[in-house]
Computed example of a mutant assay.
Amino acid sequence: MTLRPPVEPMLAQAVESVPGPGVLGELAFEQKFDGYRALLFTPTGPDSAMLLQTRRGSLIQDRFPDLVTAADKLPDGLVLDGELVVWDTKAGHLSFEGLQRRTTARGRRSTRALATSLPAFFIAFDILQQDGSELINFSYRQRRLRLEALFAARHLSAPWTLCPMTTDLLKAEQWLESWTEISGVEGIVVKAMNQPYRPGHRGWYKLRRRNTTEAIIGAITGTMIRPQLLLLGRHDAYGDLRTIGRTAPLRAELARLVGGNLIAAEAGHPWEGWRFASAWGSRDILNVTLVRPELVAEISADTAVDRGGVFRHPVRFKRLRLDVTVEEVPLFSPGPSAPPAEGSG
């Protein structure tokens, strides 16, 4: 049976540490890139064309003419699972914002212009179909061997990239510590070597590198006594308080602790009149209460930061730093990015 979109991708659940081999058996570790999940379908006959499907089932191949052109290097009847990223040629790094621009572009002229300044890469980490035959019931080990053989036999290079994988836990830990210093690589994904591919099932595990740092509490949701979320900021070089993100919901005991130290904002708060999205990229607006930007929060955050210096994922509140002043909090700054490896790496 031939796979055709929409196909639900297999998913990963976030964990704090690598699951033991006793639970999953022999493990594989892949680098986790910060892009858009995508499934790629090559033609199955003379009347079909390459299709590029998002995680939610939308088809976006018309936004990526560079990938469509490069698909002639791929065999027919192929389905790949991977991560879609783009490279900002002017800035010289991976760009999540550029990826958003490409996926929302309209019109042939616009998509082709963006393909020049923001070329796309498809980082393949799984193969679900080959020569028109489904492979989802094959083990990950078998599928990975077929994927590696495909890259070797076809001499595939940019924009087709083979996701780095290792079965060496020490090497994976090195990736987690060193590669995640590069914005654009945010962690590792752990997979069992004997696993089949189960569409829609959270059978993999993802670990993002998390760094502990400080930020200023500028606003909250909930009540002053029992805040739910903390909206965080940092001063820039000019002394302006810039937003950097929000926390995940606070546990009850932490909410009581924070609430006991909050003071309502007076007139002239730097965020007066601002509106805050409920999530990164969302149009839903939070109902917030401004507070005096005098409290410092210690937070744990992953490495996914957009060019505007905002954490794309909610950070974790660890504790109040009543011993630290706002002047001691790191200054606001955006983060760098770096390119994906080419070829079979």
Rank of each mutant, 00 (worst) to 15 (best):
K73L: 13
D126C: 14
A38E: 03
I188K: 04
V310E: 08
F33R: 07
V190H: 01
A252V: 01
T104W: 12
S17R: 06
H269T: 13
V315P: 03
S58I: 02
I285Y: 02
L145C: 01
R209D: 05
W204S: 07
P5A: 12
P314S: 03
F317C: 04
L114T: 07
L295T: 09
G260K: 10
D168R: 14
R112L: 15
A149C: 05
L286A: 08
E328V: 00
V7E: 12
E16P: 01
Y197C: 11
T221W: 08
D72P: 00
T161P: 00
F64G: 08
T213V: 00
P75T: 07
F138Y: 12
F311L: 12
G22A: 14
A71R: 12
A12T: 06
R234A: 14
L295E: 14
R154Q: 15
A219Q: 08
V185S: 06
L51N: 04
L232A: 09
T303D: 00
L52T: 04
G245R: 14
V329S: 05
S282R: 03
E30D: 10
L94S: 10
V18H: 02
L295H: 11
L162Q: 02
R292P: 00
E16M: 03
D72R: 14
N261F: 14
L51M: 14
A237P: 02
P196T: 13
P270S: 09
D88S: 06
A105C: 13
G184S: 11
V23I: 15
W280V: 00
G82Q: 09
L262P: 07
G25A: 10
V291A: 07
S183Q: 07
P334Y: 10
M1Q: 06
K73S: 15
